[in-house]
């Protein structure tokens, strides 16, 4: 009996080790002294912890981390809020056109955003927003808003209609119903959508890459710049990757529940 129970645990530990390996290599690589970087494989830890590379890279990344936070956090929170407004409107709308509208929005949202690279870059260039933080923020928003609306809509349909009907009888307008009756119930949904968008905005590489000439507009671009620059010095690249990964990873640890609920909502579309 014990043997039968042990086997699945051993298998899961084995597969689990494969999931730990990259984080392990990342951490020991970032802390490795230069002399050992040149001579030892990435999976062999050093007995001496060397923080100089990590601190130097952190200094180089600091302004870019700030830029990224300034772009991503308002964008994610804004899109989540605008998404909740749109979702509320769709939920309340009585027109038959609603079904068609939803499909039209969903198709645009789920088509690969990478296919829009040429028109998106030209759109930003024509408005003087190419290679600016505003351009990247706007680029993210264009894709985030329809996406956030669809996610929010699934959360909002879980609210019982009676909540709204009670407010309606009292003669409240849509603005008041939304602010007083619906919004307070959307707290967890808002956290889910905002967490999901913050993590995906922070980690987005393609949009900043397509809309930038330099590497200082977004953290993923900056991390990528070390790949070409550092040659074989993997401690530099790993330091950059580690520092860039900490904010989304910490957010995932703190609000993982909400992030996962967001993923589940995405997958529940067909249920």
């Amino acid at each position: 009996m014990d043997k039968i129970r042990l086997l699945p645990h051993l298998i899961i530990a084995g597969i689990g080790a494969l999931w730990a390996l990259p984080l392990y290599v990342l951490t020991i690589g970032a802390l490795k002294p230069l002399s050992e970087v040149l001579t030892t494989p990435v999976y062999v830890p050093s007995t001496n912890i060397d923080l100089t590379t990590l601190f130097r890279v952190a200094g180089e990344l600091a302004p870019v981390l700030l830029n990224t936070a300034l772009v991503v956090i308002p964008t994610a929170l804004g899109a989540a809020f605008i998404g909740s407004l749109g979702a509320y409107a769709l939920w309340r709308a009585t027109t038959k056109l609603k079904d068609v509208l939803l499909v039209v929005v969903a198709v645009a949202t789920y088509l690969p955003y990478q296919s829009a690279v040429v028109p998106l870059a030209r759109f930003m260039t024509e408005r003087g927003l190419f290679d600016t933080l505003y351009g990247i923020a706007l680029g993210l928003l264009i894709f985030f808003i329809p996406f956030a609306t669809l996610m929010m809509l699934i959360f909002i349909t879980a609210i019982p209609r009676s909540v709204v009907e009670a407010a309606e009888i009292d003669g409240a307008g849509e603005m008041l119903i939304f602010a007083k009756a619906v919004l307070p119930l959307l707290g967890p949904a808002f956290t889910s959508v905002a967490t999901y968008l913050t993590i995906s905005g922070w980690n987005n590489f393609f949009i900043p890459l397509a809309l930038s000439r330099t590497y200082n507009n977004h953290i993923t671009l900056k991390v990528f710049s070390y790949v070409g620059q550092s040659g074989n010095l993997y401690n530099e690249m790993f330091s950059a990757a580690l520092i860039a990964s900490l904010p989304p990873l910490l957010l995932f640890i703190a609000l993982g529940r909400y992030f996962i609920r967001g993923l589940l909502v995405l997958g529940s579309g067909g249920k």
Partner: peptide, 13 residues
């Protein structure tokens, strides 16, 4: 929750 660039760099090595 990791960026694909970070994952890419790790797996590349």
């Amino acid at each position: 929750s990791l960026s694909l660039v970070a994952s890419g760099i790790i797996w590349r090595w």
